[in-house]
Design a protein around this nucleic acid. Structure first.
Length: 603
RNA sequence: GGGGCUGUAGCUCAGCUGGAUAGAGCGACGGUUUCCUAAACCGUAGGUCGUGGGUUCGAGUCCCGCCAGCCCCGCCA
């Protein structure tokens, strides 16, 4: 309904101007435009849209709100274009104006949707003919080499993928960057330790598995904390690596490759595509960061370390908080890498990506870090005019006890175990239902359905929550067949596929769309909201808004399906209803696709 | 000490730029199936929106104080 909303907005604004020409004129002079406040109706009984402005304008216009509302309405009903799309407006309460769209208008809109594979969602316009848009960069997932992916990577990976899909659908060029932790002191530790206990791992492909690597990593960390000699050796090892020692580099590459393969298994299961560009990629640009900061006068040497002091952010002592960009020993740290990354991503090719928008999907705990880094980038003039850089934070994954999610033995939960368990539980549910209903299905079917449902449940549970707050992980809730869950949405689609199997032609050509039931109109109105939801998502970056919409659409559809006969209806109603079913299926499928969730025909 | 996030029904959570009587789902209680998958639908009960002020025609939403929980705060990422 975006286009309707926009054209209606113009009509209403014009009506307000005609009703109060003097005030509109004088307020234009003062740079202030009278706002009629046209918004979607807050409740179905108020129609499709409402004008709230009359209440607020009392002060400027010095008239009671109902008089203002009356004046606006009088002008509106003189507008033929308005009357073509809307019923007569109604004034309600203290001065709200309720607007209901005419059925023909909704039908026309519906007709357009049916023939539009974008379902009404506008595609962004390219700046120049033949030129591609500057990319939007989404930085997400970012596991660490030599560690297994765990529950802490879940949200970033799922939310980041969803946002990337939305931007792609809107027509942006998207760069999905996996900023893996592939550099730094941990490699010194690990290589030093492996040299002693498992030297073959440093020279032979796949000599040890990732599980062992994780064990070795843990041991190395402990040695590093306890043993001075080990610490010194590790530091030397890092220096060797950073200086490009061939043996060290070879070992490092082996370790990275091995981790990469493991990560890829998880990404494949989740149907997530990423471009790996780890921290090490920015090594050649670290020095330039320091130089550039020095040139712009931001660099300060404090206690031997090179820092930038932040504005407006104070440390414990009440003094401005420093961000260390080069350590006393000459080493760089993560802030430097992040700064180099921002610089590179905004820079133009060949030494950059030429991005217009930069999005970081990481946990909320890094908010301070990013605020600092963004401030430095801003002050160093690395962010081009009109470009945006945003941190998209999310809360912790908690167990049902409200604490950080752990295994029974108190360890972090591995992602693959989490996926396995969801799938196993989905399979058990499915088998129980099959036996209850006396259905017989192939093992292939069972495997496919359980995998799809299990993964969908995990993704949907995460995405359907407002990402800012912490999120309580519960297999029972996410796999539940009722409520705002993946299985509920998938089931709505299965019902529609069922209609097609029972002889309903979802693609029947219909000359004239004809609807007579309230449930049909509810469904139509819900379907027409899709474009607005997607466009808002691009701005607000809150996937739960899309989930909410899809859930409401499913509910509205289920009510329609339950209360209105479809296959048993007479023509022309039968075909018209099938058209609604088809558009519902298309919308649900597109919505789920944007969430990164594949759908099913039967389950 | 400074900063960030959170606090809404018994539980898990929505609530977009301030708008009409604060909404879902689960759980509880009650109902619906000769009919397209009942994995559904319909109904009932359940609230001092942490708390105290302020801003205004109007506040869950904006501002200030306080309380509680979680997270971050110079050489880890």
């Amino acid at each position: 309904m975006l286009t309707i909303y926009q054209s209606l907005g113009g009509r209403v604004q014009a009506a307000l101007g005609r009703a109060f020409p003097k005030d509109t004129y004088s307020s234009k002079e003062s740079g202030y435009i009278l706002d009629p406040q046209l918004v979607s109706a807050s409740k179905p009984e108020f129609g499709d849209f409402q004008i709230n402005g009359a209440l607020q304008l009392t002060k400027i216009l010095k008239k009671p709100p109902r008089d203002i509302a009356n004046a606006i309405v009088e002008e509106l009903i003189r507008d033929e274009t308005f009357l073509e799309i809307c019923e007569l407006p109604e004034i309600a309460g203290p001065g709200f104006i309720n607007i209901t769209l005419k059925p023909q208008c909704l039908i026309r809109e519906l007709q357009e949707r049916i023939n539009d594979n974008r379902l009404g969602v506008p595609s962004i316009k390219y700046a120049l003919e033949g030129q591609s848009n500057p990319p939007v960069i989404i930085d997400f997932s970012s596991p660490n080499i030599a560690k297994e992916m765990h529950v802490g990577h879940l949200r970033s990976t799922i939310i980041g993928d969803c946002l990337a899909r939305v931007f792609e659908f809107r027509g942006h060029q998207v760069l999905r960057l996996n900023h893996v932790g592939d550099w730094g002191t941990q490699f010194g530790m690990l290589i030093t330790h492996l040299k002693q206990v498992a030297p073959e791992a440093l020279s032979t492909v796949n000599a040890i598995n990732l599980g062992d690597l994780v064990k070795f990593y843990r041991e190395a960390k402990q040695l590093f904390d306890e043993d001075k000699n080990f610490q010194r050796n590790s530091r030397e090892e890092v220096v060797k690596l950073q200086n490009g020692d061939p043996l060290s580099l070879k070992a490092w590459r082996l370790l990275c490759n091995q981790s990469r393969e493991e990560f890829q298994k998880i990404y494949d299961r989740l149907h997530i595509h990423l471009n790996e560009r780890g921290e090490s990629f920015y090594n050649p640009y670290l020095k330039e960061v320091i130089e550039s900061l020095n040139e712009s006068g931001l660099l300060v040497i404090d206690d031997g370390a090179k820092c930038v002091f932040l504005e407006g952010i104070l440390g414990k002592d009440g003094l401005p908080l420093p961000v260390i960009v080069q350590k006393r020993d000459g080493g760089f740290n993560y802030a430097t890498t992040d700064l180099a990354a921002i610089r590179y991503r905004f820079n133009n090719s060949p030494k950059g990506d030429g991005a217009c928008r930069l999005i970081y999907v990481t946990d909320a705990g890094q908010a301070n870090h990013f605020a600092g880094v963004f401030q430095i980038a801003e002050r160093a003039n690395w962010i081009p005019k009109g470009a945006r850089v945003e941190h998209v934070p999310f809360g912790l994954v908690q167990g049902e006890d409200g604490k950080k999610l752990k295994t029974r033995s108190g360890e972090t939960v591995r992602l693959r175990d989490l996926l396995d368990e969801a799938i196993n539980r989905a399979e058990a549910d499915l088998r129980r239902r099959l036996s209850d209903e006396g259905r017989i299905e192939t093992e292939e079917f069972i495997a496919h359905v359980s995998t799809t449902v299990g993964i969908a449940a995990i993704k949907y549970a995460d995405l359907s929550q407002n990402r800012v707050s912490n999120y309580q992980f519960s297999f029972d809730r996410m796999l539940s067949l009722q409520g705002n869950t993946a299985p509920y949405l998938l089931y709505a689609l299965v019902r529609i596929a069922g209609l097609a199997r029972k002889g309903g032609n979802l693609n029947a050509a219909v000359n004239e769309l004809l609807f007579i039931e309230a449930q049909e109109w509810e469904l139509i109105r819900e379907l027409l909201k899709f474009d607005e939801v997607i466009v808002n998502l691009e701005e607000e970056l809150l996937p739960n808004r899309l989930c909410n919409y899809l859930f409401e659409l499913s509910q509205t559809f289920n009510r329609f399906y339950d209360q209105v006969p479809i296959l048993k209806a007479n023509e022309p109603y039968r075909n018209c209803r099938l058209v609604l079913c088809r558009l519902t299926a298309d919308t649900l499928k597109q919505g789920m696709t944007l969430l990164g969730i594949p759908t099913l025909e039967r389950m």
